[in-house]
């Protein structure tokens, strides 16, 4: 019963909205707002057809590459900056500045330097989503509990073991917060980097559709992008729940206590 209730709540409104869209658009003659049935047709035929390999896959590969590099660089630098106070003081204003630059504005510059191929797109994604990861990691490392840190010291846990057993796990809730912010930035930049100059990719295909007034296809592309954003955040949530199971449990215990 409780399960049915939950399922009802989870699916209720989406079903209502979808039906509403379907019915009100069914006889639509407005060029810009085609019937949902046609959009879904296009989604199934085009986006889950040839475009899946031609456009979606390249986008995803670039996203993954850029994101992973950003995670690696961001966490590494974040640990360093979080560990050494002097370094942090030295770099803080610089980092604040870089973080504040709206990431898409560096696309024109990176285009000049790296051309318009995959390298540029990956660098754009990396550059944009590195800052939240880096800054959150640094903050997490800085805030490692002093008692925990003393405990590790008295048991002579140092070097790599300290990093693995103390620093990284202790900072992991914030590292994940940074990674989550980074992921949404990465998706945005994946699309943006394909808008300027590209021969394939989700962003490219959607704009192509818009420019050639293939409206149902454009709508389908937007839905595809939405679906992708949703699925990636779902995947992220799954990974996070696994990794941070201890943290969520700890927080629940603290709140109950």
């Amino acid at each position: 019963m409780a399960f049915l209730r939950r399922a009802g709540f989870a699916l209720g409104l989406p079903i209502v909205l979808f039906t509403l869209w379907w019915v009100t658009s069914a006889s639509s003659t407005d060029f810009y707002f085609p019937p949902l049935s046609r959009i879904v047709d296009s989604l199934v035929e085009e986006w889950f057809g040839p475009r899946l390999a031609d456009d979606v896959l390249p986008s995803l590969i670039r996203l993954t590459a850029g994101y992973l590099i950003a995670a690696l660089v961001g966490i590494t630098l974040g640990v360093l900056i979080g560990t050494y106070k002097r370094l942090r003081d030295l770099l803080e204003p610089v980092l604040e500045f870089f973080r504040a630059i709206p990431p898409p504005v560096v696309v024109p510059i990176l285009m000049l330097i790296f051309g318009i191929e995959n390298t540029m797109k990956i660098v754009v994604i990396t550059f944009g989503c590195m800052w939240p990861i880096l800054l959150n990691t640094a903050e997490g490392v800085r805030a490692v509990d002093s008692v925990l840190s003393d405990t590790a010291k008295t048991y002579r846990i140092s070097g790599a073991a300290r990093l693995r057993n103390l620093i990284l796990p202790a900072a992991s809730p914030q590292i994940f917060a940074g990674l989550r912010q980074g992921l949404s930035v990465a998706i945005i930049l994946m699309v943006i980097s394909e808008l300027f100059a590209a021969s394939d990719g989700l962003g490219f295909a959607i704009v192509q559709a818009q420019r050639s007034f293939a409206i149902p296809e454009m709508w389908a592309g937007m839905l595809m992008l939405g679906l992708l954003g949703f699925l990636l955040s779902l995947l992220f949530r799954l990974v996070e729940n696994r990794w941070l199971a201890w943290y969520h449990g700890l927080r629940r215990a603290q709140r109950a206590g």
């Binding site: 989406p14 699309v191 959607i206 818009q210 409206i215 709508w219 939405g226 990636l232």
Partner: peptide, 24 residues
């Protein structure tokens, strides 16, 4: 309860997905 799933679905949709529509 009613809106939770919808918000959770719509929120991660990247805003840039709206660009073509906005242009049109």
């Amino acid at each position: 309860d009613i809106t939770a799933s919808t918000i959770e679905f719509v929120r991660p949709i990247p805003s840039v997905a709206l660009i073509p529509l906005a242009v049109l």
